[in-house]
Design a protein around this nucleic acid. Structure first.
Length: 589
RNA sequence: GCGCCGUUGGUCCAGUGGUAGGACAGUGGCUUCCCAAGCCACUAGCCCGGGUUCAAUUCCCGGACGGCGCACCA
């Protein structure tokens, strides 16, 4: 598929979506009465409802329908967790500012580009400063020398202190993922030690962004919806058949490094077979995500799956694809699907106290012979003195390596260049049978991680259109019924003939049936339709006096109307909401 | 963090060294009207701090916030 017409999309993207968002209560800058702080947004009534619907749709798809487990972990997290996860180092950027042109550069990148070093990021700042001086490095922009310029670090995590003493450092989590990794020892018990199992979490994450931009697209506090799928990479396979009908617009790394924009449109199975996507689980979630995005209102013409370039991968990822939406002319990451291998669990196993492995029982116990030694230390001690312990270790190593060395009367081992000879009978050599019933494995993790605010914003941007209806311009949000804040607006045509009372009754009947309903009797009927169009309400129903007992349903996108019995409203809307009935068919009937 | 530009009712804008005006939206009324109709009335605003000045929304400096570019961006 070609995406050659970005510029035309740029043109039709509304530049005043944030104006509509403010005016109609989707989202707006927080704390404006106090001047506001960049990067923080409040969802208004419409936005909070839309966001909740997106989250509910996510939960339905990635938790309920997948049979996964949802948890709710704290946002404040002790420092040790991020030492283990790598965020204390990995989220720490080193910047150096050019004294000539004022440009800021990643100091570690400047050093890496000019030297053989590949991991300057892990060095302390004074060493990076020293390297800049040693190699007399200059600004990549203007050529001015960077020698003597201070290298500043800042960590993108919000720091806080825990408790009255303030002596325990904590951080606001930069991702919800660590909560699921840290609690793995309990979660695996809950999952009865069986893979695959997924743990999901929807919640806020915090990043002290240098430069928050573009409304909800880069905020300092934002909601994430993350799923950690714990799998045994040797055995567990996803149900690719279930997503066989999804086609993936793939933009692999090698295509990005080439000239044009070459997209591959493949099914998940094809993507795996052709080696484009490295792994069935990645392909599975690419497909599940793509179908889900379409359901919540992402325009598939402005959607792609982009593979991370090798240098772009996060510290924990072995492969990663971003789901991207074209918004305001730019591609925005709305989800990252990362293969995190066993990185996180292994790190927590190393730094933490609990067990981050699973015991996998073999189908059949496996018996193996193992050579062991049990040296007679009452012989080795007097004979070899202080070297006796090392000799004993060397004997075990030799037994593992070459048990035939114990065939003769004497065994010879070398320790620190000295040769020691031990009578075989003093080594306690034996070959014994060991039965293994299973093994401890560290599950691998495949992580689909969604930025909820980015999804909400992209859905709004893709839904927003300016229409012309009978010569009048009309702002409309073509939100899918699945996420629209309000499902139906109920209006009396006039405020006479008892119509307001009837309409209020209809509204409360619909509410009782579980619909999100807005009642409105103010202004002209057209004005009320436009209000609902602007907040994306898919249906309106108008009560009039004639003929009695009927109402008119009006559909947002076509503005077509159809008359139904008042008594049928609940049933009709239920079918429309469930997708069992198309409005067009209702009109034709 | 740097550079450029900006900040005036809820929203979008005009304007001024003597504290402001429009449009749209909103509310009430008339109209009883199926796609932002009309009429009347009402509500509601100069981002913050400092400086210059008799007087600052206006000029100057700084800050905050926003937009764009650079840089950064699991």
């Amino acid at each position: 598929m070609s995406f050659g017409t970005w510029t035309s999309w740029r043109r039709c993207m509304s530049s005043d979506l944030s104006e509509l968002a403010r005016r109609r209560g989707f989202f707006f800058q927080s704390n404006e009465a106090y001047g506001g702080v960049a990067g923080f947004y409040t969802y208004g009534p419409e936005g909070a409802a839309l966001k909740r619907n997106v989250e509910d749709a996510w939960r339905d798809r990635f938790v309920t329908k997948e049979g996964n487990l949802e948890i709710d972990a704290p946002t404040v997290t002790p420092e040790a967790v991020f030492e283990a996860s790598g965020h204390l180092d990995g989220f720490d950027d080193m910047l150096v500012e050019c004294p000539g042109c004022g440009e800021s550069h990643r100091a570690d990148h400047v050093v890496e580009d000019a030297t053989d070093l590949e991991d300057a990021e892990s060095l302390p700042t004074d060493e990076v400063e020293a390297l800049i001086a040693e190699h007399e490095l200059a600004c990549p922009e203007c050529g001015e020398s960077l020698v003597g310029q201070p290298v500043e670090t800042f960590n993108l995590m919000f720091e806080t202190s825990i408790g009255p003493g303030g002596d325990q450092a904590g951080y606001l989590r930069p991702e919800t993922a660590q909560g699921m990794f840290v609690e793995f020892p309990r979660l695996k018990e809950y999952a009865r030690n069986q893979t695959p199992f997924g743990v999901a979490q929807i919640g806020a994450g915090y990043r002290n962004e240098i430069s928050p931009r573009n409304a909800l697209l880069r905020a300092r506090e934002f909601t994430m919806a993350e799923l950690e799928m714990f799998i045994d990479p040797e055995e567990d396979e996803p149900d690719l058949d279930a997503v066989a009908d999804v086609t993936l617009p793939l933009y692999p790394a090698d295509a990005q490094e080439g000239d044009g924009e070459e997209y591959l449109t493949l099914t998940p199975t094809e993507a795996v077979e052709e080696g484009v996507v490295a792994g069935e689980w990645l392909a599975y979630f690419l497909a599940r995500s793509t179908a889900w995005f379409e359901r919540v209102g992402i325009d598939m013409e402005k959607y792609r799956l982009r593979q991370h370039l090798p240098g772009e991968l996060a510290h924990y990822a072995s492969d990663c694809w971003d789901a991207e939406a074209l918004v305001d002319g730019d591609w925005v990451e709305i989800e990252g699907i990362a293969a995190r291998s066993d990185y996180d669990l292994s790190k927590h196993a190393k730094y933490g106290d609990d067990s981050f492995t699973l015991f996998k029982e073999y189908d059949e116990p496996v018996s193996t012979e193992r050579a062991t030694v049990d040296p007679d230390m009452s012989y080795l001690g007097p004979e070899f003195g202080g070297a006796a312990g090392d000799v004993a270790e060397a004997l075990q190593a030799l037994a593992d390596r070459d048990r035939s060395a114990f065939d003769g009367d004497e065994v010879t081992v070398e320790v620190d260049g000295e040769t020691y000879t031990v009578p075989t009978e003093q080594t306690g050599f034996a070959v014994e049978e060991v039965t293994e019933h299973g093994e401890h494995i560290t599950p691998h993790v495949v992580e689909p991680a969604f930025g909820v605010g980015r999804v909400v914003y992209s859905v709004l941007a893709h839904a927003h259109e300016t229409d012309e209806v009978e010569g009048e311009e009309r702002d409309v949000l073509r939100l899918p019924a699945a996420v629209a804040p309000t499902f139906v607006g109920v209006f009396p045509l006039t405020d006479q003939d008892g119509l307001p009372e009837t309409a209020r009754e209809v509204a409360s009947t619909l509410r009782a049936a579980g619909f999100d309903v807005t009642y409105d009797d103010s202004g002209s009927i057209g004005r009320r339709y436009r209000r609902q169009d602007e907040v994306g309400t898919p249906y309106c129903v108008t009560l009039d006096a004639d003929p009695e007992g009927t109402a008119t349903i009006r559909e947002r996108d076509s503005t077509e109307q159809v008359r139904v019995d008042v008594d049928d409203l609940v049933g009709t809307f239920a079918e429309l909401r469930a997708g069992e009935l198309d409005f067009e068919d209702l009109v034709d009937a």
